[in-house]
Amino acid sequence: MRHLSLTLLASALLCTASASWAQARKPSAPAASAAPASASQAESRSELEIDPNEPHIQAAMKKGRATASEVLKVGATGDEKRYENVAVRVLVKEGKLQEFIWLQPFEKTDKGYVGYVATVPVTLQRMQVRMSYTFQPEDIVDWMYTDKLKKTMHGQFITCAQVKKHAPQDAPVLKRRYGLDCSR
């Protein structure tokens, strides 16, 4: 059970670990190799542990969809002095395969939004880190951002659902270290 707890923590903070390259508004092309570049990227494999058919995950995705306008507004401000780790999570399907993918950074376009893959795709062969992906607001199943002034992390509904169900002992750690409050 402790391994699962550590995996959940790593998943919760995946976007934080990728913030160094996400600062650029136009990321460079992905490397030819799809191998994880760091331990934090290897931890993104925990994305596969999310079963979108489980009731607690479905409830989390419903909450993420219903509140997605919040992260889109924060992203539109471009206020890097106040907000960081602004990201959205989408469920991408490739035939019968599917995977949860974090997109960071993202921006509004005339066709919706475009974001850049921030997690190492494991199941989907056509996706690569830093590859652009076009999405619509209704495609968002989860989101996150950190308010640097208030030292709080917002969103992360799927991670909170996982923690509540599988590792409730880690909720205080998430709140203390990252300001993520899973009580809402």
Results as ranks from 00 to 15, higher is better:
residue 68 A to W: 04
residue 149 L to S: 07
residue 178 Y to I: 00
residue 95 G to D: 09
residue 2 R to E: 09
residue 103 L to T: 07
residue 38 S to R: 11
residue 38 S to D: 15
residue 154 H to W: 11
residue 182 C to Y: 04
residue 98 Q to A: 11
residue 57 I to M: 11
residue 46 S to M: 09
residue 96 K to A: 15
residue 174 L to V: 00
residue 34 A to N: 14
residue 171 A to G: 03
residue 43 E to D: 09
residue 68 A to C: 11
residue 173 V to G: 00
residue 183 S to Q: 06
residue 51 D to R: 04
residue 168 P to T: 07
residue 34 A to E: 10
residue 174 L to M: 15
residue 133 Y to P: 02
residue 4 L to G: 02
residue 34 A to L: 13
residue 173 V to R: 10
residue 154 H to R: 09
residue 74 V to F: 03
residue 171 A to V: 06
residue 65 R to M: 10
residue 153 M to G: 02
residue 140 I to C: 03
residue 158 I to H: 00
residue 119 T to E: 01
residue 4 L to N: 07
residue 16 T to W: 08
residue 172 P to C: 03
residue 148 K to L: 10
residue 162 Q to M: 11
residue 104 Q to F: 05
residue 125 Q to T: 15
residue 146 T to L: 00
residue 92 V to H: 12
residue 97 L to T: 09
residue 92 V to I: 14
residue 56 H to F: 08
residue 3 H to N: 07
residue 109 T to M: 08
residue 172 P to Y: 08
residue 26 K to E: 12
residue 45 R to K: 09
residue 23 Q to T: 08
residue 137 P to E: 15
residue 2 R to N: 03
residue 56 H to V: 03
residue 115 G to Q: 06
residue 55 P to Y: 05
residue 96 K to P: 01
residue 144 M to P: 00
residue 49 E to G: 13
residue 91 L to G: 06
residue 146 T to V: 01
residue 114 V to H: 01
residue 49 E to I: 03
residue 107 E to L: 05
residue 117 V to A: 06
residue 54 E to K: 08
residue 52 P to E: 06
residue 99 E to M: 11
residue 10 A to N: 13
residue 136 Q to R: 14
residue 111 K to C: 04
residue 167 A to R: 02
residue 154 H to M: 11
residue 81 K to C: 04
residue 8 L to V: 14
residue 166 H to W: 11
residue 147 D to C: 05
residue 10 A to K: 12
residue 160 C to S: 03
residue 174 L to N: 04
residue 84 E to T: 02
residue 106 F to N: 02
residue 96 K to G: 04
residue 19 A to I: 01
residue 178 Y to P: 00
residue 30 P to W: 13
residue 16 T to A: 12
residue 31 A to G: 14
residue 175 K to N: 09
residue 146 T to K: 12
residue 152 T to S: 10
residue 98 Q to L: 14
residue 159 T to N: 08
residue 167 A to C: 13
residue 3 H to V: 07
residue 172 P to V: 06
residue 55 P to W: 05
residue 110 D to T: 13
residue 3 H to C: 00
residue 72 L to Q: 07
residue 81 K to I: 01
residue 182 C to M: 05
residue 179 G to I: 00
residue 31 A to Q: 14
residue 37 A to D: 10
residue 34 A to H: 12
residue 41 Q to K: 08
residue 4 L to P: 00
residue 84 E to G: 06
residue 91 L to D: 05
